[in-house]
Design a protein around this nucleic acid. Structure first.
Length: 931
RNA sequence: GCCGGGAUGGUGGAACUGGUAGACACGCAGGACUUAAAAUCCUGUGGCCGCAAGGCCGUGCGGGUUCGAUUCCCGCUCCUGGUACCA
C-alpha cells in the first residue's frame, strides 16, 4: 500500500482502537486528571449533520493532547435520550419510543465512531436507561426530603424543620418557602392531620406540589417551563401556549438564586452566558411599600393596604397614582360601585388577550380607574388607584407606585390619561424623549426630608425611613421563577411518588427505579389525563396511585456529567472515590442555546448535591466554551417564470426568474451537476439550462439554518466517504474560530485533503516507495519542527485550532520544499499532528516500525534553541516608516538581545555621526529613529 | 429600548501584552508534465501608477493619543446573538 487510501486506513484504526480499548479511561489515579466533556446530544431520527461534530472534534483534540501530555483523561459521550420526537413518533406509529431511541442512538454512535472520535464508549450513559434514571429519581427524592435554610444558606433535611415546628411552631423559621404562608404554633401542628401536615411542609420542600399559573400547551397536552416557551409559542414544535392554573410539581430553584448569581463570578465561562444567567435570575434590590386604601366599596377590610415593590423608594414623593395588574385579587375589594362596569369590561378584555397580543401591543397604553384612592405614606396625599395592563401580575407584588417623572411607562400612562407629573430630581430631564430621563442623577427636589440629597443617598435614607415607620420592608426581588417539574407525557422519568389518601409519599429508596409502565397508546387519555393513566394496573403496593406525570427533559441532563465518573455503579449515583477524583468538568463544550436552561439547572442540582454532601464542589463546569453553530449554505437555481428553463447565476438578472432551492449535495463549488438534478427532480427532468460561457451552470448561494427543508444538510458520512475522517476533522477546525458562527462551505475542503496527501508524500514517493531515512536532521528542519510543536501546544491550550491547521500546512510545505524525509523529524511531527488527524498518523507511525499505537505516545517537547534565527533582520524606520533593515548575527533568542546594544549598533552602522533626536527600540521588533 | 459579539483582499480567515497588515487555504492567472483531460508540481495574486527599481493608497466611517494604531480612547454607521411593559 503506497497511496493515501483513507477508507482502508480509517476503518483499520477505528477497529484497532475499539479492540484495544485505546481510549478507555484507565484507573491510574496517580496522574493528574483532566475531564473534558461535550454536551450530550438528543439522538434525533435525522442523524448527525456536519455541524454537530464541530465541538466533538475540538474536545477530541484536547482529550488526545492532554492524554499525550500525561493526564488521566475522562472523555465520555452519552445521550439525552428522553424527549419529544420519539414520543410523537410513538403516538403516530404505536412503536415504543425505546425502540426509536435505540435505533437512533446506535446510528449516532456509528456516525461518531466514523469520525474517529476517541470516546470511552464503555462509559456511555443514556438518560432513559432505568439504571440511570434510578438516580435521577433518587435526586428528586432528596429534593423532596429537603428544605432551604436561609440562615445556613443551604439545603437541610426536612426533618430538621419538622423538629423545629414540633418544638416552637413556625415561629422563627427562616426558610425559602411559597409566597402564601401562615403562622402556626406547635399545638396547631400536633393537632394537624397527616394531610394538613404535608400541606404545610409542601410550602418548604425543595420539590413540592403547588397550584400555580403554568404555561399550558394544548397541542402537546403538557405544561412547559418558562425557557421552553418563547413569544407565546413552544420552543419545540412552535405550538401556541396559554396560561392555566394547575396543580404541579416544582423545584424550588429560587432558593438558590443568590448562590447561582454569586457563583458566576468564579467561573471561566463566556461573558455572554454569565450575563444571560444574571438577567434570567434578575435580582433587583428595593423595598416593599404599603399604601392605605380609601374606597367606598363595602367589602373593603378596614386595614387593607396595597403593597408595591419598587427599586426607587427615593421617588415616593413623586408618586401620582397606583397601578394594579388586571389579575389583581384585590380589585373586588376596592373598586367603587360607580366604576364597576368599566373595570369589569376592562379586566375581561385584558385577560382575554393572549400572551402574544399583549407582547405585540406593548406600545399601546390602556387602563381604567377604580374610583378608589391610596394614601402616600410619605406625605399623606390621596392618589388615585388605576388598573393597567402594563403591570404584570407575576412580578413583584403585581402593583406599582407610579412615578411619571422618573419611569418611562408611568410617564406615558400619565400623559395619556392626563395625570399629574411631579418632578423630583433637579438637573435631570423630565422629558421622556431625553436620554437621561431614567438616570439616577441630580439632586432630590419636592421631596421634603430628601431634598438636596443625591439619588443613592436618598435611597438609603428613604429605606431607613420606611423601615423605621413600618411603612414597609427592604426587599430583594428576583425574576427567576421556581421550575415546574412535571410534564404530562409518557417518554420521561416517572416521578417516584404515590398518593395515599391524597397525601404524596416517596417511593421507598429500595424500590427505585420506578420504571415506566407499558401502555397501549402514548397519547393522553380521552379525559385529558397523562398517558401514564392508561396503565390501569400500575399502582404502588397494588392500591395507591402513582403520580402520572413524568419529569421534564432537563432532569436527566442536570447531573449526567457525574454519572460518567462511575457509570455502572448500582449503589450510588457514583462512588465517593470517583467523585472525589474527577471533581469538576475541566472543559465543557456546547451550544450557547442552553445558557438559561441546562446550564442553570445543572448548577442548581450541583449546589444541592454539594449541600447534602454528595459532591465536594458546588460548581459543575470550570471552563465553558460555546462552539458556534455551523449554518447551512443553500444553493439556488433560477427558473425563468412560467417555463422549465433555468439560467445560470450570472445571467439571472436578464430575465424574470424565481430562485429554487437545490440539494447542495448535487452541487460542487457552486457548479450544478445537471444530470443529477434531472434525477433528483424527475418532474423537471426535461428542463433546459442556460449555461455560463465556460459551459457550467453556476448556482447562487445563501447562508441559512441547516435544515432538511432547505436542502442544505450535509451529512458527515458523505464527507468521510469522499475525503476521509481526518480531512473532515482538520477541515472543521480550519473553517474558523471554534466560537464563531459560520456557514458550511466545502469550497476549501480540497485544500485540507491535499495537505494530508502531501503529508503522506513525505513518507512515500510518487512511485509508492518508502523514503523515510535515518539521517540526522539539519537546523532548518529542526527549526520548522520545533516551531510547529510550540505553536500547536499553545494553540490547543487556547482552543485556537484554526491556526493550528495552518501551522501544520506550513510545516508540511516547508519539509516538502526541503525535500526532508528524516525519521527524526517525521516521528515527532506525526505525534503532534495525531490529535487532529489520528488515522493517517497511526498508519504512518506503524509503517515507521512501531508496534504501539501513536495515541499512547507522549507529546513531543519543543526546544527554543532550535527556533533561534542565526541572523536577525532588524527593520529600521524613520518617523514611523520602514526605510531599511540591518542584519545581526545572533547566538541567542532575539528577545534577549539588549535594547542598548541594538540602539548603538544602529547608530554605528547606519547613521554615522548624524545623531537622531530619538531612537526607540522594541525588543524583537523594530527600531524607529526620529530625525 | 437595554446588554453582549463583530466589521480586515474576489472568498474563509491570520496578526502575541500597540511594532514590517493580509499567515494558511480557497478562487483566479500563467507555466511544467500529458495526445488530451484529471491528478500532481512550480510561479504570481490587496488596490492604483510604473518596463523596472520603486512610489502612493489601504483593516466599516469621522476624529484623537503615539515615533508607530486592525489593536487604545471619543463620536457614528451597519451586521449579528440575547432580552424586554421586571416597576
Amino acid at each position: 500500500m503506497s497511496d493515501y487510501n483513507h477508507k482502508d486506513i480509517e476503518k483499520k484504526w477505528q477497529n484497532h482502537w475499539e479492540s484495544h480499548k485505546t481510549f478507555q479511561t484507565n484507573g491510574d489515579k496517580t496522574k493528574p486528571k483532566y475531564y473534558v466533556l461535550d454536551m450530550f446530544p438528543y439522538p434525533s431520527g435525522a442523524g448527525l449533520h456536519v455541524g454537530h461534530p464541530l465541538g466533538y472534534i475540538a474536545t477530541d483534540i484536547v482529550a488526545r493532547f492532554k492524554k499525550a501530555k500525561g493526564f488521566n483523561v475522562l472523555h465520555p459521550m452519552g445521550f439525552d435520550a428522553f424527549g419529544l420526537p420519539a414520543e410523537q413518533y410513538a403516538i403516530q406509529t404505536g412503536q415504543h419510543p425505546a425502540i426509536t431511541t435505540n435505533t437512533n442512538t446506535a446510528r449516532y454512535v456509528e456516525q461518531l465512531k466514523n469520525i474517529g472520535l476517541g470516546y470511552d464508549w464503555d462509559r456511555m450513559v443514556r438518560t432513559c436507561d432505568p439504571d440511570y434514571y434510578k438516580w435521577t429519581q433518587w435526586i428528586f427524592c432528596q429534593l423532596f426530603e429537603s428544605y432551604f435554610d436561609k440562615q445556613t444558606n443551604k439545603a437541610e433535611p426536612i426533618n430538621k424543620l419538622i423538629a423545629h415546628i414540633e418544638k416552637q411552631g413556625s415561629k422563627g423559621i427562616s426558610a425559602a418557602c411559597n409566597e402564601v404562608t401562615h403562622e402556626i404554633s406547635a399545638t396547631d401542628w400536633s393537632g394537624f392531620s397527616e394531610s394538613e401536615k404535608e400541606n404545610f411542609l409542601q410550602q418548604y420542600r425543595l420539590a413540592f406540589l403547588s397550584e400555580g399559573v403554568v404555561n399550558w400547551c394544548p397541542d402537546m397536552g403538557t405544561v412547559l417551563a418558562n425557557e421552553e416557551v418563547k413569544d407565546g409559542f413552544s420552543v419545540r414544535g412552535g405550538f401556541p401556549v396559554q396560561l392555566k392554573k394547575m396543580l404541579q410539581w416544582s423545584l424550588r430553584i429560587t432558593a438558590y438564586a443568590d448562590r447561582l448569581l454569586e457563583g458566576l463570578d468564579k467561573l471561566n465561562w463566556p461573558e455572554a452566558v454569565k450575563e444571560m444567567q444574571r438577567n434570567w435570575i434578575g435580582k433587583s434590590i428595593g423595598a416593599e411599600l404599603n399604601f392605605d386604601v380609601v374606597s367606598r366599596n363595602p367589602n373593603k377590610p378596614a386595614d387593607l393596604k396595597i403593597k408595591v415593590f419598587t427599586t426607587r423608594v427615593d421617588t415616593t414623593f413623586g408618586v401620582t397614582f397606583i397601578s394594579l395588574a388586571p389579575e389583581s385579587e384585590m380589585l373586588e375589594l376596592i373598586v367603587e360601585e360607580s366604576h364597576k362596569d368599566e373595570v369589569k369590561k376592562y379586566v375581561s378584555w385584558a385577560k382575554n388577550r393572549s400572551e402574544r397580543e399583549r407582547m405585540s401591543e406593548v406600545k399601546t397604553i390602556s387602563g381604567v380607574p377604580t374610583g378608589a384612592f391610596a394614601i402616600n405614606p410619605f406625605n399623606g396625599e390621596k392618589i388615585p388607584v388605576w388598573i393597567a395592563d402594563y403591570v404584570l401580575a407575576g412580578y413583584g407584588t403585581g402593583a406599582v407606585m407610579a412615578v411619571p417623572s422618573s419611569d418611562v411607562r408611568d410617564y406615558a400612562f400619565a400623559k395619556h390619561f392626563n395625570l399629574p407629573i411631579i418632578p423630583i430630581q433637579e438637573g435631570k430631564n423630565t422629558d421622556i424623549s431625553q436620554p437621561d430621563f431614567e438616570a439616577k442623577a441630580g439632586t432630590m427636589i419636592n421631596s421634603d426630608f430628601l431634598n438636596g440629597l443625591s439619588v443613592p443617598e436618598a435611597i438609603q435614607k428613604a429605606v431607613a425611613f420606611v423601615e423605621e415607620k413600618g411603612f414597609g420592608l427592604g426587599r430583594t426581588n428576583y425574576r427567576l421563577r421556581n421550575a415546574i417539574f412535571t410534564r404530562q407525557r409518557y417518554w420521561g422519568e416517572p416521578i417516584p411518588v404515590y398518593f395515599e389518601n391524597g397525601v404524596p409519599k416517596l417511593l421507598p429508596e429500595n424500590q427505585l427505579p420506578l420504571t415506566l409502565p407499558d401502555v397501549d397508546q402514548y397519547k393522553p387519555t380521552e379525559t385529558g389525563e397523562p398517558p401514564l393513566a392508561r396503565a390501569k394496573e400500575w399502582k404502588y403496593d397494588g392500591k395507591y396511585n402513582f403520580e402520572l406525570s413524568t419529569m421534564p427533559g432537563w432532569a436527566g441532563s442536570s447531573w449526567y456529567f457525574l454519572r460518567y465518573m462511575d457509570p455502572k455503579n448500582s449503589q450510588s449515583l457514583a462512588s465517593q472515590e470517583a467523585l472525589d477524583y474527577w471533581q469538576q468538568v475541566d472543559l465543557y463544550v456546547g451550544g450557547a442555546e442552553h445558557a438559561t436552561g441546562h446550564l442553570l439547572y445543572s448548577r442548581f442540582w450541583q449546589k444541592f448535591l454539594f449541600d447534602i454532601g454528595i459532591v465536594k464542589f458546588d460548581e459543575p463546569f470550570k471552563k465553558l466554551v460555546n462552539q458556534g453553530m455551523i449554518q447551512g449554505r443553500s444553493n439556488f437555481v433560477y427558473r425563468i417564470k412560467g417555463t422549465k428553463r433555468f439560467v445560470s447565476f450570472h445571467q439571472k438578472d436578464r430575465f424574470e426568474t424565481s430562485p429554487l432551492h437545490v440539494d447542495v449535495n448535487i452541487v460542487d463549488n457552486d457548479i450544478l451537476n445537471i444530470e443529477q438534478f434531472r434525477l433528483w427532480r424527475p418532474d423537471l427532468a426535461d428542463a433546459e439550462f442556460e449555461l455560463e460561457p465556460d459551459g457550467n451552470y453556476v448556482c447562487g448561494a445563501e447562508v441559512e439554518k441547516m435544515s432538511k427543508s432547505l436542502y442544505n444538510v450535509v451529512n458527515p458520512d458523505t464527507i468521510v466517504e469522499r475525503y476521509g475522517a481526518d480531512t473532515l476533522r482538520v477541515y472543521e477546525m480550519f473553517l474558523g474560530p471554534l466560537e464563531q458562527f459560520k456557514p458550511w462551505n466545502t469550497n476549501g475542503i480540497e485544500g485540507v485533503n491535499k495537505f494530508l496527501k502531501r503529508f503522506w508524500r513525505l513518507f512515500y514517493d510518487e512511485n509508492g516507495k518508502w523514503k523515510v531515512t535515518q539521517e540526522e536532521p539539519n537546523p532548518a528542519e529542526l527549526k520548522i519542527l520545533h516551531k510547529t510543536i510550540k505553536k500547536i501546544e499553545s494553540d490547543i491550550n487556547a482552543l485556537s485550532f484554526n491556526t493550528s491547521a495552518a501551522a501544520f500546512m506550513v510545516c508540511v510545505n516547508e519539509l516538502t520544499s526541503l525535500k526532508s524525509s528524516k525519521k527524526a523529524i517525521l516521528e515527532p511531527f506525526a505525534i503532534t499532528l495525531a490529535p487532529f488527524a489520528p488515522h493517517i498518523c497511526e498508519e504512518l507511525w506503524e509503517k515507521m516500525g512501531h508496534t504501539e499505537s501513536i495515541s499512547l505516545e507522549p507529546f513531543p517537547a519543543w526546544n527554543d534553541q532550535f527556533i533561534v534565527e542565526n541572523t536577525f533582520d532588524y527593520p529600521i524606520s524613520i518617523n514611523g516608516k520602514v526605510r531599511t533593515k540591518i542584519s545581526f548575527a545572533v547566538d541567542k533568542p532575539a528577545k534577549e538581545i539588549e535594547d542598548e546594544v541594538i540602539a548603538s549598533e544602529v547608530l554605528q552602522k547606519w547613521l554615522e555621526g548624524k545623531p537622531p533626536k530619538k531612537v526607540i527600540v522594541v525588543p524583537n521588533r523594530i527600531v524607529n529613529v526620529v530625525m
